[in-house]
Design a protein around this nucleic acid. Structure first.
Length: 174
DNA sequence: ACGATGATGAAC
DNA sequence: TTCATCATCGTA
């Protein structure tokens, strides 16, 4: 099987492009000797300091510092008192942007993804790479444009009508 | 439908 | 220092 680990070059692109490109790619998790790969089926883009749905719209706080950093780093934060959210940083340094992984094959919901893959704050700020135990791979699956649907993002009504209605969510239809 | 559960930022 | 708000999920 053809495998290519996705690195900085892949993620250092416009957030929306990266989000769409991640569909059909694989997220690989290694814990000790066991390694599991899951095809990515649902993502959301959070794009820049003016995106009111992005936590980075409040400025460069410790919680979101990683979003301002290097593309290809993992951004993990805690919400709703019980869920970890897994993102990967995109675009240039000092431009806060990331893609939230909302679903993978067989697992729907960002909180379930992190629970299943045992993701928590220990991964925050780590590079998405085999050395950190969590990374992304291109395994040669081609995704047709027609297999991708775009919708507005989930749970961001607080962001105001403009930002809440941006079609920044990408879903791979079965 | 709503409660669990806690970090965050804004208000006071 | 308190408070409402949340990129949610499970149970109902």
């Amino acid at each position: 099987m053809r495998r290519r680990v996705l690195g900085k070059k892949f993620f250092d692109e416009p957030t929306l492009d990266v989000a769409r490109s991640l569909l059909g790619k694989y997220m690989v998790r290694r814990r000790g000797k066991t390694e599991k790969a899951y095809m990515i089926t649902e993502v959301e883009a959070y794009d820049g300091p003016r995106d009111k749905a992005s936590h980075a719209s409040h400025g460069r706080t410790p919680r979101v510092e990683v979003m301002f950093g290097e593309a290809g780093k993992l951004f993990v934060y805690f919400t709703y008192g019980m869920h970890w959210m897994l993102n990967v940083v995109t675009g240039p340094k000092d431009y806060p942007a990331a893609v939230l992984v909302r679903g993978v094959e067989g697992i729907n919901g960002p909180g379930r993804v992190t629970k299943k893959l045992l993701v928590d704050k220990k991964l925050n700020g780590k590079k998405a790479a085999p050395s950190s135990g969590l990374w992304f791979e291109d395994r040669g699956i081609a995704i047709r444009r027609s297999a991708i649907s775009r919708t507005s993002r989930i749970g961001v009504s607080y962001a105001g009508s403009y930002w809440a209605s941006r079609k920044y969510r990408f879903v791979l239809s079965v």
